[in-house]
Write a protein that binds this DNA or RNA. Structure first.
Lengths: 339, 339
DNA sequence: CTGAAAGCGCTTACAG
DNA sequence: CTGAAAGCGCTTACAG
């Protein structure tokens, strides 16, 4: 069994209060007793148990991250940012999965009630305003990533604007019949991107053809998977009057779409959304979401809020940047498509 | 402030023991008192604090995962498996990062001494035998992924064998001058893969040319990054007598290598190692590591061990499977390379 | 500088 | 079926 503060106190001939003090770097301890305690602790492999400290201090120094099980590369890159940033503080990270079902709110509440974290970062947890409000009563520091609620700090990317910019890039290159590969149209990010896509076409006076908005059959992770993009692009290229260029709701789907174009031997310009780490290497033009930075910022905001509860709520909305690569080559007059 | 067991007990007119019993589903509680307690708990948004439960039970129901900050896609896919599997149990996941420096052992020990987890999963933490042994004294359930020590449960993939199979695939297709893109040659997985590569060439009676083993300049994450593969392939193709085929230590580097081949307009057959989720979509022939399954297995083994301390130690070594895709097309007689 | 004691929010024998 | 009480391993005023 691992030793406790009592074992150390006994061996060192001091009280447990003193042992506690040396581990908490309280100034008023003789150098001599400090050394003695430390020596014995080292010998017995002792260190205060975080669990007991947390209870006594009423502070766990844990940040809980809640993420739907449909965790994807987006989450992974956000997590990387959180990990790197939290290393600067004396906090640890705990991850909770919620199933993306109708009782999302209850699942989230349950996690909060159990009280592991001093603060909570919710990534891509999509709730209604009144549901967010009901979370408010726990008076916990909360930061939302990829969502918006006026009562909590939020960090997100403007999907509508991003989709608009992406689509517009295609328009500016001279394309008119522009299709879109969407994901689950009921999911928030998907919905916003469809909106931005439509708006860009409308503003340019181009046709918005509902048949040109397609998605695949695989709805795992709300359709944000390679195979969904593959299926969608196959459908798109099989249409009698296929689009001459395409905006794709995510990089991961774009990867599948590119394979479909290869298989169909029909390559059309493509711009996607995310800018995952590998996208540079497949030459994908895309709207860059600063995922890593969002993760870092979330940690900063949350830790700051655990310290100053009354700080003003802050909403950070990033504008995604258009990163042009080889999947949208310069427009060369006429396009090689069927129809 | 959030309510405690005392608040509920007072409101319900029972003792805290009774409240505790209803939340622990102890059988002997009248249905009537149970309902009363639950009603009040619901009203006050009460649920037992996990922290206090853990201390009282001496069981945290937390599994701690230790991973170097150089976390990469390998870790991500393992994590996915762990997340999905842990959902079946009443455990939560906590993630700790260690910096990949000389005091890896101390960092790991510190995490264990703090005692959050009931058990520990260490991913890609590479220590010496005597260092592992020193961890043994904590008598904690430990599972190692991507490492081996006789005293702990371990889960790994045979890198030597995998590299052998990969290289042999190229040999069987008729290639003789086979190069290798390695990562940091001092990192264990890298070392093993170089060994398997060499052994395959030797067994086939082919030349092992040290100059054909190259790595890039970017040693972030031990060189397991896209840009490293890009740089390495550029070097390889610039050699006066360039290899006619290549084994690459990881999929992520292969992505960079493919871009280099595109830029150099010189495509040689390539087989990599990992089989990341997206690799199928870039048509990469590779040695598949069952990362997701490894994550799942690690959770199963660890939870099983927390329950039966005296279970026999188990070492699971997966043989990576060769997944053939378009990056290694059929050998067509003569090869188109310089030299 | 150091110790005795209360308290953090629970669980769980032990009685009844 | 229920309660009083001890205990989990610490921290932290309060005295001295």
């Amino acid at each position: 069994m691992s030793s406790t503060i009592y074992d150390i106190a006994r061996e060192a001939g001091v009280s447990i209060a003193t042992v506690s003090r040396v581990f908490n770097n309280t100034p008023n301890v003789t150098e001599k007793t400090r050394e003695k305690v430390l020596a014995i602790a080292d010998e017995l492999g002792y260190h205060p148990k975080a669990l007991a400290q947390s209870l006594a201090r009423k502070k766990s120094r844990i940040i809980s991250v809640v993420v739907p099980v449909i965790s994807n590369y987006f989450f992974m890159e956000v997590l990387a940012g959180m990990q790197d940033k939290i290393a600067e503080y004396d906090y640890d990270l705990q991850i909770f999965n919620v199933r993306d079902s109708d009782n999302l709110l209850q699942q989230t509440e349950h996690i909060m009630k159990r009280g592991w974290g001093e603060g909570y970062i919710l990534i891509s947890v999509h709730l209604e305003d009144k549901e967010w409000k009901s979370l408010d009563k726990y008076k916990l520091p909360i930061v939302l990533i990829d969502e918006y609620f006026s009562g909590f700090d939020t960090i997100s990317v403007d999907s509508v604007e991003g989709a608009y910019t992406a689509t517009n890039h295609l328009i500016e290159q001279g394309y008119k019949r522009i299709g879109m590969i969407s994901a689950n149209p009921l999911a928030k990010p998907s919905m916003d991107r469809i909106m931005g896509y439509k708006r860009a076409l409308e503003d340019a006076g181009h046709l918005v053809n509902p048949e040109w908005i397609v998605t695949g059959d695989n709805m795992t992770r709300d359709g944000f998977v390679e195979s969904n993009g593959y299926e969608a692009m196959m459908k798109m290229l099989e249409k009698e009057k296929a689009p001459e260029a395409c905006f794709c709701a995510s990089d991961i789907q774009a990867l599948g779409a590119i394979k479909a174009m290869r298989d169909k031997k029909n390559r059309i310009p493509l711009v996607a959304f995310d800018d995952l780490e590998f996208s540079e290497y497949v030459g994908l033009t895309t709207m860059r979401q600063p995922m890593y930075e969002m993760g870092q910022l979330a940690i900063e905001r949350l830790i700051s809020r655990t310290k100053h509860k009354e700080e003003d709520i802050r909403h950070t909305v990033f504008s995604p940047d258009l990163i042009i690569r080889s999947s949208t080559p310069e427009y060369s007059g006429y396009i090689n498509t069927s129809g």
